[in-house]
Design a protein around this nucleic acid. Sequence first.
DNA 1: CATTTCACCGTCAGAGCTGACTGTGAAAGC
DNA 2: GCTTTCACAGTCAGCTCTGACGGTGAAATG
Lengths: 210, 210
Amino acid sequence: MTRRDEQRAATARRIVEAAVECLVAKGFAATSTVEVQNRAGVSRGALLHHFPTREQLFAAAVHRLVELNLEAMREELAGAPPGLDPVARGIWVMRRASTRPTFGTELELWGASRADPNLHAALRVAEQAVRKDLYQMIDEIFGTEISRAANYQVLVELSVQLVRGLSITSLLYRGDPGREPLIEEWTRVARLVLAQEPMSDQPERPRSAS
Amino acid sequence: MTRRDEQRAATARRIVEAAVECLVAKGFAATSTVEVQNRAGVSRGALLHHFPTREQLFAAAVHRLVELNLEAMREELAGAPPGLDPVARGIWVMRRASTRPTFGTELELWGASRADPNLHAALRVAEQAVRKDLYQMIDEIFGTEISRAANYQVLVELSVQLVRGLSITSLLYRGDPGREPLIEEWTRVARLVLAQEPMSDQPERPRSAS
DNA sequence: CATTTCACCGTCAGAGCTGACTGTGAAAGC
DNA sequence: GCTTTCACAGTCAGCTCTGACGGTGAAATG
Protein backbone atom coordinates (compact mmCIF):
# COMPACT_ATOMS: atom_id res chain seq x y z
CA MET A 1 0.00 0.00 0.00
CA THR A 2 1.90 3.00 -1.21
CA ARG A 3 1.19 6.53 -0.24
CA ARG A 4 -0.58 7.06 -3.54
CA ASP A 5 -2.92 4.19 -2.97
CA GLU A 6 -3.83 5.52 0.43
CA GLN A 7 -4.50 8.94 -0.98
CA ARG A 8 -6.55 7.48 -3.75
CA ALA A 9 -8.66 5.43 -1.39
CA ALA A 10 -9.12 8.35 0.98
CA THR A 11 -10.34 10.64 -1.78
CA ALA A 12 -12.67 8.04 -3.18
CA ARG A 13 -14.09 7.52 0.28
CA ARG A 14 -14.62 11.23 0.77
CA ILE A 15 -16.49 11.43 -2.50
CA VAL A 16 -18.71 8.47 -1.75
CA GLU A 17 -19.44 9.80 1.71
CA ALA A 18 -20.36 13.16 0.24
CA ALA A 19 -22.62 11.48 -2.29
CA VAL A 20 -24.45 9.61 0.44
CA GLU A 21 -24.82 12.78 2.49
CA CYS A 22 -26.18 14.55 -0.52
CA LEU A 23 -28.67 11.80 -1.29
CA VAL A 24 -29.90 11.90 2.27
CA ALA A 25 -30.04 15.68 2.43
CA LYS A 26 -31.28 16.67 -1.01
CA GLY A 27 -32.81 13.53 -2.38
CA PHE A 28 -32.11 11.53 -5.51
CA ALA A 29 -33.49 13.97 -8.08
CA ALA A 30 -31.53 16.91 -6.68
CA THR A 31 -28.22 15.15 -6.27
CA SER A 32 -25.94 16.26 -9.09
CA THR A 33 -22.31 15.42 -9.58
CA VAL A 34 -21.44 19.09 -9.11
CA GLU A 35 -23.18 19.11 -5.76
CA VAL A 36 -21.28 16.05 -4.68
CA GLN A 37 -17.93 17.43 -5.76
CA ASN A 38 -18.51 20.65 -3.87
CA ARG A 39 -19.66 18.81 -0.79
CA ALA A 40 -16.59 16.60 -0.93
CA GLY A 41 -14.33 19.59 -1.45
CA VAL A 42 -12.89 18.05 -4.57
CA SER A 43 -12.24 19.36 -8.06
CA ARG A 44 -14.26 18.32 -11.04
CA GLY A 45 -11.25 16.47 -12.38
CA ALA A 46 -10.86 14.47 -9.21
CA LEU A 47 -14.48 13.43 -9.22
CA LEU A 48 -14.38 12.29 -12.80
CA HIS A 49 -11.10 10.57 -12.24
CA HIS A 50 -12.59 8.33 -9.58
CA PHE A 51 -16.08 8.04 -11.03
CA PRO A 52 -16.07 8.62 -14.78
CA THR A 53 -19.85 8.68 -14.99
CA ARG A 54 -22.64 9.78 -12.80
CA GLU A 55 -23.96 6.26 -12.89
CA GLN A 56 -20.81 4.80 -11.37
CA LEU A 57 -20.81 7.41 -8.64
CA PHE A 58 -24.36 6.55 -7.72
CA ALA A 59 -23.65 2.86 -7.75
CA ALA A 60 -20.91 3.37 -5.18
CA ALA A 61 -23.08 5.67 -3.09
CA VAL A 62 -25.96 3.23 -3.13
CA HIS A 63 -23.69 0.45 -2.03
CA ARG A 64 -22.50 2.51 0.90
CA LEU A 65 -25.99 3.55 1.83
CA VAL A 66 -27.16 -0.03 2.03
CA GLU A 67 -24.18 -0.87 4.17
CA LEU A 68 -25.04 1.98 6.51
CA ASN A 69 -28.54 0.64 6.94
CA LEU A 70 -27.21 -2.75 7.86
CA GLU A 71 -24.92 -1.16 10.41
CA ALA A 72 -27.89 0.75 11.74
CA MET A 73 -29.59 -2.49 12.69
CA ARG A 74 -26.46 -3.67 14.46
CA GLU A 75 -26.34 -0.45 16.43
CA GLU A 76 -30.00 -0.54 17.35
CA LEU A 77 -29.62 -4.11 18.51
CA ALA A 78 -26.76 -3.04 20.75
CA GLY A 79 -28.79 -0.16 22.12
CA ALA A 80 -32.05 -2.00 22.59
CA PRO A 81 -33.68 -1.50 25.98
CA PRO A 82 -33.22 -4.50 28.25
CA GLY A 83 -36.17 -6.44 29.54
CA LEU A 84 -37.89 -6.92 26.21
CA ASP A 85 -38.89 -10.39 25.20
CA PRO A 86 -37.32 -11.60 21.94
CA VAL A 87 -40.35 -10.82 19.78
CA ALA A 88 -40.76 -7.30 21.11
CA ARG A 89 -37.05 -6.69 20.84
CA GLY A 90 -36.83 -7.96 17.29
CA ILE A 91 -39.66 -5.79 16.10
CA TRP A 92 -38.45 -2.82 18.08
CA VAL A 93 -34.97 -3.02 16.57
CA MET A 94 -36.30 -3.34 13.04
CA ARG A 95 -38.59 -0.39 13.53
CA ARG A 96 -35.92 1.80 15.03
CA ALA A 97 -33.46 1.08 12.28
CA SER A 98 -36.10 1.88 9.70
CA THR A 99 -36.83 5.31 11.12
CA ARG A 100 -33.36 6.57 10.34
CA PRO A 101 -32.99 9.07 7.53
CA THR A 102 -30.72 6.74 5.64
CA PHE A 103 -33.46 4.15 5.52
CA GLY A 104 -35.95 6.64 4.15
CA THR A 105 -33.37 7.54 1.55
CA GLU A 106 -32.97 3.92 0.59
CA LEU A 107 -36.69 3.56 0.11
CA GLU A 108 -36.71 6.72 -1.97
CA LEU A 109 -34.13 5.09 -4.20
CA TRP A 110 -36.23 1.93 -4.41
CA GLY A 111 -39.03 4.08 -5.67
CA ALA A 112 -36.84 5.98 -8.12
CA SER A 113 -35.43 2.70 -9.43
CA ARG A 114 -38.86 1.82 -10.74
CA ALA A 115 -38.20 3.72 -13.95
CA ASP A 116 -34.43 3.98 -13.86
CA PRO A 117 -32.72 0.80 -15.06
CA ASN A 118 -29.25 1.90 -13.99
CA LEU A 119 -30.29 2.69 -10.48
CA HIS A 120 -32.34 -0.46 -10.37
CA ALA A 121 -29.34 -2.57 -11.28
CA ALA A 122 -27.10 -0.82 -8.79
CA LEU A 123 -29.62 -1.32 -6.03
CA ARG A 124 -30.07 -5.00 -6.73
CA VAL A 125 -26.35 -5.58 -6.66
CA ALA A 126 -26.00 -3.67 -3.41
CA GLU A 127 -28.93 -5.44 -1.77
CA GLN A 128 -27.66 -8.78 -2.94
CA ALA A 129 -24.31 -8.07 -1.32
CA VAL A 130 -25.78 -7.56 2.14
CA ARG A 131 -28.73 -9.91 1.87
CA LYS A 132 -27.16 -12.80 3.68
CA ASP A 133 -25.75 -10.65 6.48
CA LEU A 134 -29.07 -8.90 6.84
CA TYR A 135 -31.13 -12.02 7.40
CA GLN A 136 -28.44 -13.41 9.64
CA MET A 137 -28.74 -10.24 11.70
CA ILE A 138 -32.49 -10.53 11.82
CA ASP A 139 -32.16 -14.05 13.16
CA GLU A 140 -29.81 -12.62 15.74
CA ILE A 141 -32.09 -9.86 16.94
CA PHE A 142 -35.00 -12.25 17.33
CA GLY A 143 -32.83 -14.78 19.07
CA THR A 144 -32.09 -18.36 18.20
CA GLU A 145 -34.82 -19.93 20.28
CA ILE A 146 -37.52 -18.18 18.32
CA SER A 147 -35.86 -18.53 14.94
CA ARG A 148 -36.59 -22.24 15.04
CA ALA A 149 -40.31 -21.79 15.55
CA ALA A 150 -42.60 -23.08 12.85
CA ASN A 151 -43.98 -19.71 11.86
CA TYR A 152 -40.76 -17.77 12.26
CA GLN A 153 -40.19 -17.19 8.55
CA VAL A 154 -43.66 -15.83 8.11
CA LEU A 155 -43.23 -13.60 11.10
CA VAL A 156 -39.99 -12.15 9.77
CA GLU A 157 -41.33 -11.59 6.31
CA LEU A 158 -44.48 -9.91 7.54
CA SER A 159 -42.46 -7.75 9.88
CA VAL A 160 -40.09 -6.68 7.13
CA GLN A 161 -42.92 -5.65 4.84
CA LEU A 162 -44.81 -3.95 7.63
CA VAL A 163 -41.79 -1.94 8.67
CA ARG A 164 -41.19 -0.86 5.09
CA GLY A 165 -44.78 0.24 4.81
CA LEU A 166 -44.57 2.20 8.03
CA SER A 167 -41.35 3.76 6.90
CA ILE A 168 -42.62 5.04 3.60
CA THR A 169 -45.82 6.17 5.23
CA SER A 170 -43.93 8.25 7.72
CA LEU A 171 -42.07 9.91 4.88
CA LEU A 172 -45.34 11.58 3.97
CA TYR A 173 -46.88 11.83 7.41
CA ARG A 174 -43.94 12.76 9.55
CA GLY A 175 -44.62 13.57 13.11
CA ASP A 176 -48.35 13.41 12.53
CA PRO A 177 -50.11 10.77 14.56
CA GLY A 178 -47.30 8.65 15.93
CA ARG A 179 -47.72 5.25 14.43
CA GLU A 180 -45.86 3.54 17.22
CA PRO A 181 -49.05 2.15 18.76
CA LEU A 182 -49.38 0.05 15.64
CA ILE A 183 -45.99 -1.48 16.37
CA GLU A 184 -47.27 -2.51 19.79
CA GLU A 185 -50.30 -4.09 18.21
CA TRP A 186 -48.15 -5.90 15.75
CA THR A 187 -45.96 -7.20 18.54
CA ARG A 188 -49.00 -8.74 20.20
CA VAL A 189 -50.15 -10.24 16.93
CA ALA A 190 -46.66 -11.56 16.31
CA ARG A 191 -46.68 -13.46 19.61
CA LEU A 192 -50.01 -14.90 18.62
CA VAL A 193 -48.61 -16.04 15.29
CA LEU A 194 -45.65 -17.73 16.89
CA ALA A 195 -47.87 -19.59 19.32
CA GLN A 196 -49.89 -20.93 16.42
CA GLU A 197 -49.50 -24.22 14.63
CA PRO A 198 -47.66 -23.97 11.29
CA MET A 199 -49.79 -21.74 9.10
CA SER A 200 -48.84 -23.04 5.71
CA ASP A 201 -47.28 -25.99 4.01
CA GLN A 202 -43.60 -25.21 4.33
CA PRO A 203 -43.12 -21.54 3.47
CA GLU A 204 -39.44 -22.18 2.81
CA ARG A 205 -37.70 -18.83 3.05
CA PRO A 206 -38.88 -16.72 0.15
CA ARG A 207 -36.49 -14.13 1.59
CA SER A 208 -37.08 -10.69 0.31
CA ALA A 209 -33.81 -8.88 0.60
CA SER A 210 -32.73 -5.69 2.32
CA MET B 1 -70.21 26.73 -19.88
CA THR B 2 -69.17 28.41 -23.09
CA ARG B 3 -67.32 26.72 -25.87
CA ARG B 4 -64.13 28.34 -24.70
CA ASP B 5 -64.48 26.92 -21.23
CA GLU B 6 -64.99 23.46 -22.62
CA GLN B 7 -61.95 23.79 -24.79
CA ARG B 8 -59.93 25.07 -21.90
CA ALA B 9 -60.97 22.23 -19.67
CA ALA B 10 -60.33 19.66 -22.37
CA THR B 11 -56.81 20.91 -23.00
CA ALA B 12 -56.01 21.07 -19.32
CA ARG B 13 -57.24 17.51 -18.97
CA ARG B 14 -55.09 16.33 -21.84
CA ILE B 15 -52.05 17.92 -20.26
CA VAL B 16 -52.70 16.41 -16.85
CA GLU B 17 -53.35 13.02 -18.36
CA ALA B 18 -50.09 13.25 -20.28
CA ALA B 19 -48.26 14.26 -17.13
CA VAL B 20 -49.59 11.24 -15.28
CA GLU B 21 -48.66 8.94 -18.14
CA CYS B 22 -45.21 10.42 -18.17
CA LEU B 23 -44.77 9.99 -14.42
CA VAL B 24 -45.82 6.38 -14.69
CA ALA B 25 -43.68 5.67 -17.73
CA LYS B 26 -40.51 7.63 -17.07
CA GLY B 27 -40.60 8.32 -13.37
CA PHE B 28 -40.49 11.52 -11.38
CA ALA B 29 -36.90 12.51 -12.03
CA ALA B 30 -37.21 12.07 -15.79
CA THR B 31 -40.52 13.85 -16.23
CA SER B 32 -39.83 17.26 -17.71
CA THR B 33 -42.35 19.84 -18.83
CA VAL B 34 -41.11 19.47 -22.39
CA GLU B 35 -41.77 15.75 -22.26
CA VAL B 36 -45.27 16.35 -21.01
CA GLN B 37 -46.06 18.96 -23.63
CA ASN B 38 -44.90 16.67 -26.41
CA ARG B 39 -46.83 13.74 -25.04
CA ALA B 40 -49.93 15.91 -24.79
CA GLY B 41 -49.41 17.22 -28.30
CA VAL B 42 -49.54 20.77 -27.06
CA SER B 43 -47.37 23.80 -27.66
CA ARG B 44 -45.09 25.23 -25.04
CA GLY B 45 -47.31 28.26 -24.81
CA ALA B 46 -50.36 26.15 -24.10
CA LEU B 47 -48.64 24.24 -21.35
CA LEU B 48 -47.42 27.37 -19.64
CA HIS B 49 -50.77 29.01 -20.09
CA HIS B 50 -52.49 26.29 -18.09
CA PHE B 51 -49.66 25.54 -15.69
CA PRO B 52 -47.34 28.51 -15.28
CA THR B 53 -44.81 26.53 -13.31
CA ARG B 54 -43.60 22.99 -13.27
CA GLU B 55 -44.67 22.80 -9.68
CA GLN B 56 -48.30 23.54 -10.48
CA LEU B 57 -48.30 20.99 -13.26
CA PHE B 58 -47.03 18.34 -10.91
CA ALA B 59 -49.54 19.24 -8.25
CA ALA B 60 -52.35 18.64 -10.73
CA ALA B 61 -50.80 15.41 -11.95
CA VAL B 62 -50.33 14.14 -8.43
CA HIS B 63 -53.91 14.89 -7.62
CA ARG B 64 -55.07 12.92 -10.62
CA LEU B 65 -52.77 10.04 -9.85
CA VAL B 66 -54.15 9.69 -6.35
CA GLU B 67 -57.65 9.73 -7.76
CA LEU B 68 -56.74 6.98 -10.18
CA ASN B 69 -55.52 4.82 -7.34
CA LEU B 70 -58.76 5.27 -5.49
CA GLU B 71 -60.67 4.29 -8.62
CA ALA B 72 -58.41 1.28 -8.90
CA MET B 73 -59.70 -0.04 -5.60
CA ARG B 74 -63.25 0.45 -6.71
CA GLU B 75 -62.55 -1.51 -9.87
CA GLU B 76 -60.80 -4.32 -8.08
CA LEU B 77 -63.66 -4.58 -5.66
CA ALA B 78 -66.05 -4.91 -8.57
CA GLY B 79 -63.89 -7.57 -10.17
CA ALA B 80 -63.10 -9.55 -7.06
CA PRO B 81 -63.59 -13.29 -7.38
CA PRO B 82 -66.79 -14.48 -5.74
CA GLY B 83 -66.71 -16.92 -2.89
CA LEU B 84 -64.12 -15.14 -0.81
CA ASP B 85 -64.93 -14.43 2.78
CA PRO B 86 -64.84 -10.72 3.72
CA VAL B 87 -61.37 -10.77 5.20
CA ALA B 88 -59.83 -12.56 2.25
CA ARG B 89 -61.69 -10.33 -0.16
CA GLY B 90 -60.63 -7.15 1.58
CA ILE B 91 -56.99 -8.05 1.61
CA TRP B 92 -57.13 -9.38 -1.92
CA VAL B 93 -58.63 -6.16 -3.23
CA MET B 94 -56.09 -4.00 -1.45
CA ARG B 95 -53.24 -6.09 -2.73
CA ARG B 96 -54.49 -6.09 -6.28
CA ALA B 97 -55.00 -2.37 -6.37
CA SER B 98 -51.51 -1.86 -5.02
CA THR B 99 -49.84 -3.89 -7.73
CA ARG B 100 -50.92 -1.45 -10.42
CA PRO B 101 -48.24 0.72 -12.00
CA THR B 102 -49.99 3.86 -10.84
CA PHE B 103 -49.66 2.74 -7.26
CA GLY B 104 -45.96 2.12 -7.64
CA THR B 105 -45.71 5.57 -9.12
CA GLU B 106 -47.49 7.06 -6.16
CA LEU B 107 -45.09 5.39 -3.79
CA GLU B 108 -42.19 6.66 -5.86
CA LEU B 109 -43.57 10.14 -5.35
CA TRP B 110 -43.91 9.55 -1.63
CA GLY B 111 -40.26 8.71 -1.60
CA ALA B 112 -39.27 11.68 -3.71
CA SER B 113 -41.31 13.97 -1.49
CA ARG B 114 -38.95 13.22 1.34
CA ALA B 115 -36.59 15.95 0.24
CA ASP B 116 -38.87 18.00 -2.01
CA PRO B 117 -41.11 20.35 -0.03
CA ASN B 118 -43.25 21.29 -3.03
CA LEU B 119 -44.00 17.74 -3.96
CA HIS B 120 -44.55 16.91 -0.33
CA ALA B 121 -47.16 19.62 0.02
CA ALA B 122 -48.91 18.64 -3.20
CA LEU B 123 -49.07 15.03 -2.10
CA ARG B 124 -50.49 15.82 1.30
CA VAL B 125 -53.19 17.96 -0.22
CA ALA B 126 -54.06 15.25 -2.72
CA GLU B 127 -54.11 12.51 -0.12
CA GLN B 128 -56.15 14.62 2.21
CA ALA B 129 -58.73 15.08 -0.53
CA VAL B 130 -59.35 11.38 -0.99
CA ARG B 131 -58.67 10.24 2.56
CA LYS B 132 -62.26 10.01 3.63
CA ASP B 133 -63.42 8.27 0.47
CA LEU B 134 -60.53 5.86 0.73
CA TYR B 135 -61.32 4.67 4.22
CA GLN B 136 -64.97 4.52 3.37
CA MET B 137 -64.07 2.29 0.49
CA ILE B 138 -61.93 0.10 2.68
CA ASP B 139 -64.87 -0.35 5.04
CA GLU B 140 -66.89 -1.30 2.01
CA ILE B 141 -64.53 -3.93 0.71
CA PHE B 142 -64.26 -5.59 4.09
CA GLY B 143 -67.98 -5.40 4.59
CA THR B 144 -70.01 -3.81 7.30
CA GLU B 145 -70.29 -6.85 9.55
CA ILE B 146 -66.55 -7.02 10.02
CA SER B 147 -66.00 -3.31 10.23
CA ARG B 148 -67.69 -3.29 13.61
CA ALA B 149 -65.37 -5.87 15.10
CA ALA B 150 -63.22 -4.81 18.01
CA ASN B 151 -59.92 -5.23 16.22
CA TYR B 152 -61.07 -4.01 12.85
CA GLN B 153 -59.12 -0.73 12.96
CA VAL B 154 -55.93 -2.52 13.81
CA LEU B 155 -56.52 -5.00 11.04
CA VAL B 156 -57.03 -2.27 8.46
CA GLU B 157 -54.02 -0.28 9.53
CA LEU B 158 -51.74 -3.30 9.56
CA SER B 159 -53.06 -4.34 6.16
CA VAL B 160 -52.47 -0.90 4.69
CA GLN B 161 -48.90 -0.78 5.89
CA LEU B 162 -48.22 -4.34 4.85
CA VAL B 163 -49.53 -3.74 1.38
CA ARG B 164 -47.41 -0.63 1.01
CA GLY B 165 -44.37 -2.58 2.10
CA LEU B 166 -45.09 -5.34 -0.38
CA SER B 167 -45.65 -2.80 -3.09
CA ILE B 168 -42.37 -0.99 -2.67
CA THR B 169 -40.57 -4.30 -2.27
CA SER B 170 -41.91 -5.53 -5.57
CA LEU B 171 -40.63 -2.38 -7.22
CA LEU B 172 -37.14 -3.70 -6.62
CA TYR B 173 -37.86 -7.41 -6.83
CA ARG B 174 -40.33 -7.61 -9.65
CA GLY B 175 -41.30 -10.99 -10.81
CA ASP B 176 -38.75 -12.61 -8.55
CA PRO B 177 -40.25 -14.91 -5.98
CA GLY B 178 -43.94 -14.17 -6.07
CA ARG B 179 -44.78 -12.72 -2.73
CA GLU B 180 -48.42 -13.72 -2.98
CA PRO B 181 -48.02 -16.58 -0.52
CA LEU B 182 -47.34 -13.98 2.11
CA ILE B 183 -50.72 -12.43 1.39
CA GLU B 184 -52.31 -15.79 2.09
CA GLU B 185 -50.48 -16.04 5.36
CA TRP B 186 -51.52 -12.57 6.27
CA THR B 187 -55.13 -13.42 5.51
CA ARG B 188 -54.97 -16.30 7.97
CA VAL B 189 -53.36 -14.10 10.59
CA ALA B 190 -55.98 -11.43 9.96
CA ARG B 191 -58.80 -13.87 10.71
CA LEU B 192 -56.99 -14.77 13.88
CA VAL B 193 -56.75 -11.14 14.87
CA LEU B 194 -60.42 -10.52 14.29
CA ALA B 195 -61.37 -13.50 16.40
CA GLN B 196 -59.31 -12.12 19.27
CA GLU B 197 -60.46 -10.02 22.17
CA PRO B 198 -59.71 -6.31 21.77
CA MET B 199 -55.95 -6.02 21.61
CA SER B 200 -55.51 -2.57 22.97
CA ASP B 201 -57.31 0.08 24.89
CA GLN B 202 -59.39 1.62 22.16
CA PRO B 203 -57.02 2.41 19.31
CA GLU B 204 -59.39 5.05 18.02
CA ARG B 205 -58.73 5.38 14.31
CA PRO B 206 -55.27 6.79 13.88
CA ARG B 207 -56.11 6.67 10.17
CA SER B 208 -53.09 6.86 7.99
CA ALA B 209 -54.26 8.25 4.71
CA SER B 210 -54.04 7.02 1.15
C1' DC C 1 19.03 11.68 -10.99
C1' DA C 2 16.14 10.96 -14.92
C1' DT C 3 11.97 9.33 -16.29
C1' DT C 4 7.47 7.79 -15.97
C1' DT C 5 3.22 7.32 -13.88
C1' DC C 6 -0.92 9.04 -12.13
C1' DA C 7 -3.92 11.52 -8.92
C1' DC C 8 -5.85 15.60 -9.52
C1' DC C 9 -6.96 20.35 -11.61
C1' DG C 10 -9.85 23.82 -14.22
C1' DT C 11 -12.08 24.96 -18.38
C1' DC C 12 -15.22 24.17 -21.87
C1' DA C 13 -18.57 22.42 -25.24
C1' DG C 14 -22.83 20.44 -25.86
C1' DA C 15 -27.33 19.39 -24.36
C1' DG C 16 -31.64 19.85 -21.89
C1' DC C 17 -34.76 22.32 -19.13
C1' DT C 18 -37.53 26.17 -17.33
C1' DG C 19 -40.11 30.08 -17.73
C1' DA C 20 -40.46 34.82 -19.97
C1' DC C 21 -42.09 37.11 -23.85
C1' DT C 22 -44.33 38.58 -28.12
C1' DG C 23 -47.46 37.38 -31.36
C1' DT C 24 -52.26 35.58 -33.45
C1' DG C 25 -56.73 34.20 -34.55
C1' DA C 26 -61.07 32.79 -33.06
C1' DA C 27 -64.72 33.17 -29.64
C1' DA C 28 -67.24 36.36 -26.46
C1' DG C 29 -69.19 40.67 -25.32
C1' DC C 30 -71.46 45.03 -26.50
C1' DG D 1 -69.98 44.60 -36.71
C1' DC D 2 -66.48 46.21 -33.87
C1' DT D 3 -63.75 45.60 -29.95
C1' DT D 4 -61.99 42.89 -26.42
C1' DT D 5 -60.62 38.84 -24.37
C1' DC D 6 -58.10 34.79 -24.10
C1' DA D 7 -56.56 30.16 -25.35
C1' DC D 8 -52.79 28.99 -27.57
C1' DA D 9 -48.25 29.30 -30.61
C1' DG D 10 -43.24 29.57 -31.07
C1' DT D 11 -38.92 31.57 -29.93
C1' DC D 12 -35.38 32.68 -26.83
C1' DA D 13 -32.42 33.82 -22.91
C1' DG D 14 -30.42 32.03 -18.98
C1' DC D 15 -29.27 28.39 -16.19
C1' DT D 16 -27.44 23.82 -14.82
C1' DC D 17 -25.67 19.47 -15.62
C1' DT D 18 -22.58 16.05 -17.62
C1' DG D 19 -18.48 14.41 -19.34
C1' DA D 20 -14.35 15.45 -22.42
C1' DC D 21 -9.83 17.29 -22.51
C1' DG D 22 -5.19 19.17 -22.05
C1' DG D 23 -2.39 20.37 -18.33
C1' DT D 24 0.66 19.83 -13.71
C1' DG D 25 3.32 18.46 -10.00
C1' DA D 26 4.42 15.07 -6.74
C1' DA D 27 5.22 10.24 -5.96
C1' DA D 28 7.04 6.02 -7.77
C1' DT D 29 10.54 3.66 -10.51
C1' DG D 30 14.96 2.50 -12.55
